[in-house]
Write a protein that binds this DNA or RNA. Structure first.
Lengths: 338, 338
DNA sequence: CTGTTAGCGCGTTCAG
DNA sequence: CTGAACGCGCTAACAG
């Protein structure tokens, strides 16, 4: 690979001059700049990123850490992030967890290969974030709360969305509503449970612990819960699954047992994944503003990188999307029919 | 940020010794290693990636460049790549195109921040690849063919899949089959067209140019084609859309005009995106082995990084998935009912 | 076994 | 306006 030295030699100038010429620093005669540029393109010169990063102490790159790069879910988020990163002329790189010892985040943010990070990945330990975050590497957390300087927070209003969608079921006249949670350590799942609980309380309904089931966010676990629930003789009138995958799995489970959704049991999910609108019956769910989430996360990250302090946490509103799986006879304030 | 020098000073050893101690180089007394490790953890020392990369001339990282990080489509690919990257103890970072001048691939592979790359993004210019690829940065191309040293090729058998799915329509007794292409510069779309053509030829059917429509891989363009086609009075018996999105758009377009799929017109797509199996009627399509594609791409990349030469291109078989949108009365060799 | 030293490639002074 | 020299933080080779 051609280095700056090679370019300088070919252009017949010193290495320092070559550098100034390439970086458009004023104070280089036009004719010599021409020579340098020519030499550079002739040698197919590419500046070495590592060397530059080392010298300038910055990378002009931000990292996005996701548990899984799957789905339009994350894709929209990344689009939002990247749109503002482009604006700031930063590159964006995304990475997943990975198994081995020193992978992804170790290499990327622990070793300082990015100037900032956005994290939505429960597998990244709190401790790693705590010991890495700082003025030189601010981090935006989308999946948890950590009260540490330079740790910013942006999230959708999980609790509010859960509250609204539960209310939607209640207003349809359903009183016994089951809840299918995600993993117990999922912050989001817990918030959704809180919204569910608050809604019930508001309607004066006592929490029935026998109606709380635990899933793991997968379609399979939803089907399992369906099997368990349908074996009881007191079928609830509605089910709120903490995410769409489980809701879909639950519906499949009902089909296998010839239980009709929504006639015999209403089902609602959370996230509004793409297939939610295609499935039959179409799934009532809560939509998170993923693109906006990405935009806000990135914007706050850059503000911090630029030196701004005391940026307060942001919570973006969610939206109930009423479809067939919950009948949808009742319209809730702020909700939308699709 | 604490540097190696700080650690050395605190531990009361030289900087070189500290380095050896931390890198588990043999030949350091156990007691001094202890001291160094303690000092390091006390200072929360993190090696600086840029400095190490500069020195060692490698990054232990590979880059994956996608046009869009959307969908389970790419997600499976990345999973495949990352699984073998983990095996080789390399980090994997993914990146999209991005707008600005010096974003993503400029910074990542032009400036040498990765040891190898896998590209599935038509917006990365051939020229960039040509001038960057080399012994120090091998590249696997998934979306095009470039006859350049250190440029590897892995792809699904687009032509074969298209051939088979067209044959499936022909064997159902359909003779007039329309083709909806993607953008004209899409290598994949062109290959799929070739398969379509070959299948027709084999059945002794002449290519009818009035049955060739151009889309752009979006659902909207599929709907547009439907509108255009249905305004004719000689509706073909079947349509092969070069991807699933367009096939779905086409089906929606048919619904709007009260044309029944598959009774009046059979529709098949390509890719087997998730919703293909959820939509009504479920879409007959061709599945690409995305996970395997990722595995093979990554494995060949690492073999090249390890110095192996002359790795030949790989073409992985595709699979016809017969569903309702094409009736599916006929079974084709190698195809599967889902 | 440990300390010293020389770069990796680049950007940035500071003399000339 | 240009060139020489220094150092970013680290590893590796070589002395001691």
């Amino acid at each position: 690979m051609a280095t700056l030295k090679d370019v300088a030699k070919l252009a017949g100038v010193s290495i320092g001059t070559a550098s100034s010429a390439l970086n458009r620093h004023s104070g280089v005669k036009e004719s010599t700049r021409k020579k340098v540029l020519e030499a550079a393109s002739l040698l197919n010169y590419r500046p070495n990123g590592a060397a530059r990063d080392l010298k300038t102490q910055k990378t002009d790159t931000i990292g996005v850490f996701l548990h899984d790069l799957a789905g339009p879910f994350y894709s929209e988020l990344i689009r939002g992030i990247q749109d503002v990163a482009d604006e700031y002329e930063y590159a964006t790189i995304a990475s997943r967890g990975g198994k081995g010892r020193n992978t992804s985040w170790t290499r990327l943010f622990v070793e300082g290969r990015v100037d900032g990070a956005i994290v939505l990945d429960p597998t990244v330990p709190d401790e790693v974030i705590r010991s890495t975050v700082g003025p030189t590497l601010p981090i935006v957390l989308l999946d948890r709360i950590l009260d540490v300087p330079y740790c910013l927070h942006v999230a959708a209003d999980h609790e509010g969305g859960a509250y609204e969608v539960t209310k939607h079921l209640l207003e349809s006249g359903i009183r016994r509503i089951a809840f299918v949670s995600g993993p117990s350590d999922s912050h989001d799942s817990n918030l959704r449970f809180r919204g569910y609980k608050r809604s019930l309380e508001e309607f004066g309904i006592e929490l029935d612990h026998s109606l709380i089931y635990r899933g793991d966010f997968t379609e399979g676990s939803g089907a399992l819960v369906a099997r368990a629930m349908l074996s009881r003789d007191d079928l609830p009138g509605g089910v709120f699954a903490a995410n769409d995958e489980m809701a879909l799995g639950f519906i499949h489970g009902c089909e296998s047992s010839d239980i009709i959704v929504p006639d015999q049991i209403a089902v609602v999910g959370f996230d509004d994944i793409i297939v939610a609108s295609y499935v039959n019956p179409a799934l009532t769910t809560v939509r998170q503003p993923m693109y906006e989430l990405g935009v806000v996360a990135a914007r706050n990250l850059f503000r911090t990188i630029r030196g701004e302090k005391d940026i307060s946490p942001v919570i973006l509103p969610t939206q109930v999307i009423i479809r067939d799986s919950s009948k949808g006879h009742v319209r809730t304030f702020g909700s939308v029919h699709v």
